[in-house]
């Protein structure tokens, strides 16, 4: 007589509470609580509400400067990055020189230099008056020139991460270096670069605060102007902090969502 070996059915162990607690995004809860507390303050306290409304006037400028600068920095960074990995000694060295130049100088100093020295110098060269270019435009030019160099490094890393074999495969099919770059390497590289580009976008959003030194009326500058007459330092700077924190949080969650989608889509 054979014994019927009934195999015990093994269930995966249920995830216990501990595992759920470990994985819960507590950090998000804490940040949201802080934001929530501030929002309540703004709703119930007229002083907070006034300051909030004042700073709100600078928001469109912050967003506008961020968006325009990022788009142009992407384009400029792409070309710089391609120059960086170019076979041409001249192009490569020009790109490296530029990138090292930018990376070797503090951003605040670069903003001054570009806005008050480089742009007026170029304006004069083209026969324009010194004040032909608005301060906001100068701020955007400065951010594009600075962030182009950072983004170029992202492109370079993205391109170099694609194996040499892909370029060889494209070339062996008779495609030129440029065609292979455009149709084979860059589409793959861009996908890998999304997280790094997202970080640069968030960094750029924060760094727009630096152009307040030019008098561009974005949220930091508006706050400073407001404080200089109201002397409400605590309320103003807490709310300003809240603005940046909310924006970077929204942006970072948005980017995570886009990355997840890009991964599924591929």
């Amino acid at each position: 007589m054979t014994v019927d070996h009934e195999r015990p059915e093994i269930q995966p162990r249920p995830r216990d509470l501990r595992a759920h607690l470990d994985e819960f995004p507590w950090w998000l809860l804490i940040i949201l609580s802080v934001i929530g507390y501030m929002v309540v303050q703004i709703i119930v306290d007229p002083i907070y509400r006034n300051i909030f409304n004042t700073i709100l006037q600078g928001l469109s400028t912050t967003l506008y400067v961020t968006a325009i600068s990022f788009v142009f920095a992407l384009i400029f960074g792409l070309f710089l990055g391609l120059g960086r990995v170019s076979n041409s000694v001249i192009l490569r060295n020009l790109s490296i020189t530029y990138i090292e130049f930018i990376r070797g100088v503090p951003m605040l100093v670069l903003i001054f230099t570009i806005s008050y020295a480089v742009v007026p110098l170029l304006a004069r060269t083209f026969g324009l008056p010194n004040n032909a270019i608005s301060l906001t435009s100068r701020a955007i030019i400065a951010l594009v020139l600075i962030y182009g160099a950072y983004i170029a490094e992202v492109f370079r890393a993205g391109i170099e991460a694609i194996g040499r074999g892909q370029m060889e495969a494209g070339r062996s099919l008779g495609m030129s270096r440029w065609q292979t770059m455009l149709y084979v390497i860059l589409p793959q590289a861009t996908r890998n670069m999304l997280p790094a580009l997202g970080n640069d976008l968030i960094a750029l959003l924060k760094d727009t605060s630096l152009v307040s030194v030019l008098g561009v009326r974005e949220i930091t500058q508006v706050s400073r102007l407001s404080v200089s007459t109201s002397f409400r330092y605590e309320e103003t700077y807490f709310i300003l902090t809240l603005f940046y924190l909310s924006m970077t949080l929204i942006l970072s969650l948005l980017l995570q969502w886009i990355q997840r989608r890009a991964k599924i889509k591929r």
Binding site: G170, G174, Q179, V184
Partner: peptide
């Protein structure tokens, strides 16, 4: 024509687009 040890297909393109790309561009 060349065939590589590690295939080197273009991972972002479908099979048919892999075969069509150079035909169209070259």
């Amino acid at each position: 024509g060349m065939v590589f040890q590690r295939f080197e297909l273009f991972p972002h393109l479908t099979v048919i687009d892999n075969i069509c790309l150079a035909q169209q561009k070259v």
